[in-house]
């Protein structure tokens, strides 16, 4: 009973899309951060649907993001892993799931996060993108060795 309830809720909350990307199994409450990581702002032209805290069999509750007419690249997908390692990505073409992929935590992330150290050379007008190594303890700045251990999303550029 529970399962069909969940499916029904999901159906009501977010309609199927014809073409685009469905990001499923996002940790409950992280959907807005996922949208932020993908660089989607209020001025985006793509149709975007977000469902948060949807009951889920495996996760208790989860978030879902559906993005119309845009297929995410591998790099974009992997960034999501930083905040939601269980997320799954479905590429939809003509209402059908064409590709299903899990996210993989990247080893290096470039140009996504701003180094919190005001004295860091990456926060100047040098022709470089910020660069962080993803370590178990957090994100390590390639330039100044600063480590971001928490509240990752607040440092997203």
């Amino acid at each position: 009973m529970k399962n069909s309830d969940a499916a029904e809720n999901e159906g009501l909350l977010v309609r199927r899309i014809k073409n685009g990307t469905v990001i499923d199994h996002i940790d409950g409450g992280e959907a807005l951060n996922v949208v932020k990581i993908l660089g989607i702002t209020g001025t985006t032209h793509e149709a975007l649907s977000i469902a948060t805290n949807v009951p889920s069999r495996n996760m208790g509750c989860k978030d879902i993001v559906k993005l119309t007419n845009r297929e995410l690249s591998k790099e974009e997908v992997d960034r999501i892993a930083l905040i939601s390692p269980r997320a799954t990505i479905n590429i939809i073409r003509n209402y059908k799931v064409c590709e299903k992929k899990g996210v993989e935590i990247p080893k290096i992330i470039e140009g996504l996060v701003k180094c919190p150290n005001p004295g860091c050379i990456s926060n100047t007008n040098e022709p470089i993108r910020s660069k962080f190594e993803v370590l178990p303890k957090g994100l390590h700045c390639h330039y100044c060795d600063w480590v971001i251990t928490r509240d990752l999303t607040s440092h997203i550029i």
């Binding site: 004295g119 860091c120 050379i121 990456s122 100047t124 040098e126 470089i128 100044c144 600063w146």
Partner: peptide
Amino acid sequence: ETLADTVRVVSGYADAIVIRHPKEGAARL
């Protein structure tokens, strides 16, 4: 001028560069 440019120019003048700079990570850059 950016440090990146200075370093590219100086690379043509010298066999090694020794750098002291007020920003962290400048030598790595």
